[in-house]
Amino acid sequence: MRPARAARSGGPASGSVLLPHLSRRTLLAGTGAAVAAVLAGCSGTSTAAPGSPGPLRIGAIPDQDPEVLQRQFRTVAASLAAALDLETEYRPVTDYAAAVSLFRTGDLDLVWFGGLTGVQARLQTRGAVPIAQRDIDEEFHSVFVVNTATGLAPADDLRPLAGLRFTYGSETSTSGRLMPAYYLREAGVDPGGFPGGPGFSGSHDATIALVASGTYQAGVLNEQVWRSRSEDGEVDPAVTAYARTPAYHDYHWLLGPGAVERFGDDLAGRLTGWFTGLSADDPDDAAVLELFGAGSFIPTEAANYRQIEEIGRDLGLVS
């Protein structure tokens, strides 16, 4: 930032005085200490014993309150570890694309993906298998919300939205971007149109806040988040629901090939068995189900997300 000063201070006056200060002795001693410290640091980082498979690393796309996610996935990780007798670890991620990349690199083994991110991850990671989804994921919805100043009353017609400043959520969110864009186009509204182009708020909560402020007059988000924020009374009264999309498949658990290699071929089956076996009658299981806002987990397969993949290709989100 101040090259001028640096250049000046490198002049002969300061240099000749500094010369004895940075004598070879100091330099060598310092370098030696640093090298020793680095070596000491490195030798301490021996990896896990070759025989042990290490922990099953669980992750999730960051589409909700991180604190809730933290609680949710710590609970799952603990219950799973106890039930299947394996070591688990939850690793929070800040960004949708990072979750997909980390699944590809094998840093995450079992990830709670959205519909689109799940497809992206599966296409990039050969051997990835969908494990389970919630009962509500079979029929998931998005909610279009509007600022009350627009004067729009709830309706099924999406066309009035075309003239409003509009924001999606995260760019690769299934419920905050992909499916709403699809249904907008079905209704004859250009999903990339809108005055000034659509915005990407980055998260469902930011969508609510931006529509409440009126910066964007309308937006779209995950119905589950909208419902939970409404029930908690956290939604600004300036935001109101306008329309609800038809149902589509959304969230699911995806297992990476690396974990199967480490834990054995039956891992996918055991995981599906555990998830689908969770029962609301058992108090421990109920805690997990409640955190996920689900009645139960049900099996799923790659074919369920074919529509999402096609729409993703159409919109240029899957390549």
Binding site: M1, A6, S9, G10, G11, G15, S16, L18, L19, L22
Partner: peptide, 13 residues
């Protein structure tokens, strides 16, 4: 040696 001061200063910056 003559440049040492500038180099050190910039490293800290």
């Amino acid at each position: 040696p003559a440049a040492a001061g500038g180099l050190l200063s910039y490293s800290f910056y």
